[in-house]
Structures are given as C-alpha cells and as structure tokens.
Design a protein around this nucleic acid. Structure first.
Lengths: 283, 283
DNA sequence: GCAAAAGTGTTAGCTCTACACCCATGA
DNA sequence: TCATGGGTGTAGAGCTAACACTTTTGC
C-alpha cells in the first residue's frame, strides 16, 4: 500500500464496494408418521430481484457498504434488514472483483457465510424472499496429465427448491498444477435463474462449509442451544450429503459436548439426552 | 445486492479498493561447516514507506486496484512491480475494511498470500525493500469460562529480522463462544514499526499458512521444482516452527511425490533422491 | 407387541508416534 | 575414519469404519 503508484487513493469513480451474505440453515422436513424424526436438508436464503438487469432472478441478500461502517457491520446490517435474522455466526468467505460481475457498474463484493438454526422463522413477508433447499452433485469429473502438469475438471450441478420455484445451475471448476504452482478456477456455465455471480458464491460457500465441518466446530452454529446427538448427526449428514455411522459419530463429537440433565419427550420413542456445545480447547 | 437500499452504487466518494500481498518464502541460512545442510527459516517481504503517515515504517507490497483489472490481476501487478517476483502461487487471504485502517482516507484492502521458492533472488535494489525472517511466539494464553460462554485470549509476539532492522510487534487475539455462536477478534497492541494494520494481516497469514500445511498441498509452492525429502521437511519445520520425525514425515508425504532419477551430489554426505510434486488426487 | 430411535460394545484395520538401526558419502 | 545426512523397520497407542446388540419409549 505504498502510495507511489498512480491509481491509489486518487480515484473518485473507483469501484463500489458491497457485501453479500450466504445465509445457511438446516431445515427439518415433516416426518411421514408419528414415530419418525424429521428429515434434515441444507437450505440457503435468496431474494427475488425486482429490478433490472436481473429482474425476476434470485440473489443473495446484500448491498452497498456505508461510509461509516466496516465490512462486518455492513454484512450484519444487510442480513438484519433483508432477512430479520441477527445474532448469528458469520465469517468472511471470499471477495469477488471480476470486472463485469455486475453489468451496470464495477462492484467489488465481499461475501460472507452466515449460519443460523432457525430456518422456519418468519423471515420476510411476501413472495420475494425464500428459503431454498440445496442439492449439489458432481455430474462430471475428469483428471488429466498435461504437458505442463496436472488438471482436474469438475462439472457441478446445484439444484435449489422452494415452493413453486426450482433453480438449476451448472458450474465448472478446474484445478491445475503446473510444475509446483497450483490454481483453482471456477465459472458459471448455466446461471439457471441466479443473479450476478451468486451461483459461484454459493458453490464456493458450500465447499467451504463442508470442508470446515471436518476440522472445525462450525456446525454448532447451525444448532439450537440444546440438541440431541441424533439432531447433530442429521445436520452433519445434511451438509455433507452423506450417511454417517451413529456410534462412531458420537465418539468423535464427545469432546465438544457438555451433557445436560434435560431430555426430549413425547417423541414416539425413547427419550434422548440433550447436549450443548463446549469448545474443544476447553479441555 | 438488491438495489433497493440507498447507499448502493450511488456513492462517488466510496472507499478506495487496494490489494496487499504477503509474499512468503523459506530462506536457507549458511551452514556452519561443509557437512551440514543449511538451516531454513520462514521469511516475508516488506517495503519501507517513504511517505506520511507511516514514513520509515515497513509495509506489505500493495496498492490500488485499477479500473480495468480484477483483484487477482491487481495483486499480480503489485507483486511483480514491487518485488519483481512473478509466476507464483497466490490465494486470497482476507479483506480488511476497518474505518481507520488507513488514516488518510477510507481504504478497503483485499489481502493475498503469495508463496515462492526464491527468497534469495535479487528482488529490488536499494535500502527500501527487504526479506525479513519471521519468528512468532505465543507469549500469553488464558482460557476463561464466562457467564455467557467461553473465552480464549492469546498474546502473540512476532519478531522480524533483516540486516540492520529488527521489528517487534505484539497482537492480541480473542476467541469467544456465547451459547453456540463463536467469534474471533484480533487487534494490534504494539505495531512495532509495521505500517497500517499490516501486522494483523501478517499474523492472519501466518496462521492460515500453518493450518493449510496440515490439510493441503500448499507447501509445494514454497519448493523448487526438484527437491529432496529433507528439504521438504525443513520447509515444513520452518513454517510450523516445530521439529518433525523423519521416517513419519516421509511416509505421510509419499502420496504427493513423484520420484525422479536425479540425485544430489557433492554435499559432504550420502546423495539424496530428488522428487517433484504430484497432486494427491492424481491417484 | 412393535416400530423407531437411544445408546453401547467389539473387532479388524489403519494411521500416527517415537525410536532404533543401517547405509553412503567426501573430506 | 567419521560426522552427517539418507533411508527403512518396528512395536504400541490411538483412531476409524463397520456392524451388532441392548434399552426405552408411545401407541
């Protein structure tokens, strides 16, 4: 940030700066009968655009950063005003700066992941904001040895479901290694009704969420304060899209849990102990 | 990014956008005698500020983002022009948007990590740019159970050494858990001759680099094309600041290596096989 | 009784750790 | 010859996957 190059701090028409928030939750779907527990699915919150150039398409909640707020504050404000969700976990995901990601003007967007446990909460009235169930699939995968190194190409299908709306977006990712230098490249093939580059942001966010599940305690931000071990497991399964083995899962989680004296009841089967989160570093 | 809030895309005096690059390398220090291999240390590249308000202090290479370039391009351009290093691994680290991180005007900075294997290369003439050896130590640690949850405080000392210059910066980090919601907070206690919030960026980058060594192949970006297993181990040890056990290290790395028919020689001891990188997903 | 989920135990295989040991080189 | 690093083997601890089994509830 030395000042010696021409374009630093002198532009009056520099790029706008915005934030966009990927609000994730794990939703419970009604069980088939009184004995069964609800199924769990990963959900993301989107808003229908009412203005050109993406009128009718769906976008992440977000907007411009004010002159008196830092990025985190802007993200919180946008989330609170657009979704009525507050006091949630939030972390920066990635900053998107492609020249034409917004066709109107140059906008640099700092994206955030937010996690909540209340997808069912009344979040906004009207038809223009919805929780979408997320389904992600790798539909093509190709490994190559090239003259210069290695290449891994994947085609990814993300499907989004809400009542009356289904979106289908396709993304390509390319990982290359040339000599020792590795790179990742992502591009939208079919936006499928998702505005701006938000399909890319979503894909990036899902990847981050999944990988952080494995080596951090981030999943607890998707849980209510008290929860059963089966509920916790269902959240992992919904995010990872993969069945886990109960006994093993419980042993692995043991270090992050504080037992309570509370129990579930009236569930049509044996009551379960309720736990709450205790960080791993608290011995 | 719906357009419906007042401060989106209408400001002409919005924040400036810049990039800052943490260029890391692992340097070799001259061995004591002909038999010994060189010691390895983590190094970072800094530039001495020649203008107010941080005149005489040291900062990361960086500068404003041009109107016709995306963030990655800006980072590459800054790196190339300030350090004469190009064709290196680079990834986004974090975007810094505090209101007063630059006392002159509002600047939002997207920071990058860059990794190279050539710290010794003549990088820039004159007295105003140096490779610094990095030493990081946790000098205080406190765990607490509070009314609302848990808290982990750490005080971190980072020392930077170059010929004729020693910098000493102290940073506090606080990790809190309230109920289920976790947060991280970082602040500079003593900048110690480092400009802007670049001490924070450095600390953040070291943490990221260390944690990514464990679960990615990122370390190979710090290696030359051909290297011995001991060299690779020394790079890991320099970054992690921790001795590793040779036999175990070799077994763990086996899946990421392609053997060559080349050998070292004239080293004052038994010759070693040279390897090159092969990504883990290439079977 | 029975369906569903809560919760525990066991085994085989793998990985991680720590350490010991031998080999090859050039001065 | 010997200091130094190159390279491999092994035993024990601990983790993981997979599966089987018992317990407790509401209807």
């Amino acid at each position: 940030m030395s000042k010696s190059d021409g374009n630093a701090f002198t532009r009056q028409n520099g790029p706008s700066v915005a934030v966009d928030v990927l609000l994730f939750a794990v939703g419970r779907q009604e069980p088939e009968n009184y004995r069964k527990l609800p199924e769990h699915v990963l959900q993301v919150f989107l808003i229908k655009q009412s203005e050109v150039p993406f009128i009718g398409q769906w976008a992440l909640p977000g907007g411009g950063v004010g002159p008196r707020e830092c990025l985190d504050e802007a993200a919180y404000r946008q989330l609170a005003s657009k979704t009525h969700v507050s006091n949630v976990y939030m972390e920066q995901l990635y900053t998107w700066g492609d020249l034409h990601r917004d066709p109107r003007t140059r906008v640099i967007s700092c994206s955030y992941i937010a996690l909540t446990d209340k997808p069912s909460e009344k979040i906004r009235d009207g038809e223009d904001a919805r929780w979408f169930t997320v389904r992600r699939k790798v539909i093509e995968q190709r490994e190559e040895i090239t003259e210069k190194g290695y290449m891994l190409r994947e085609k990814i299908l993300i499907q989004l479901f809400a009542e009356g709306v289904t979106l289908r977006t396709v993304i390509n990712t390319v990982k290359t290694v040339e000599g020792k230098i590795s790179r990742v490249w992502r591009e939208t093939v079919e936006p499928g009704g998702i505005a701006f580059d938000h399909a890319l942001i979503l894909e990036c966010g899902i990847e981050r969420l999944r990988s952080k599940l494995a080596y951090t305690e981030i999943a607890f931000n998707l849980m209510p304060e008290y929860f059963t071990l089966t509920e916790l497991q269902q959240v992992y399964e919904a995010v990872l899209d993969k069945k886990l083995i109960k006994a093993n899962f419980r042993r692995k989680m043991a270090g992050f849990l504080r037992e309570t004296s509370l129990m579930t009841k009236d569930d049509g089967h044996r009551p379960a102990k309720l736990y709450c989160f205790k960080p791993g570093w608290m011995n």
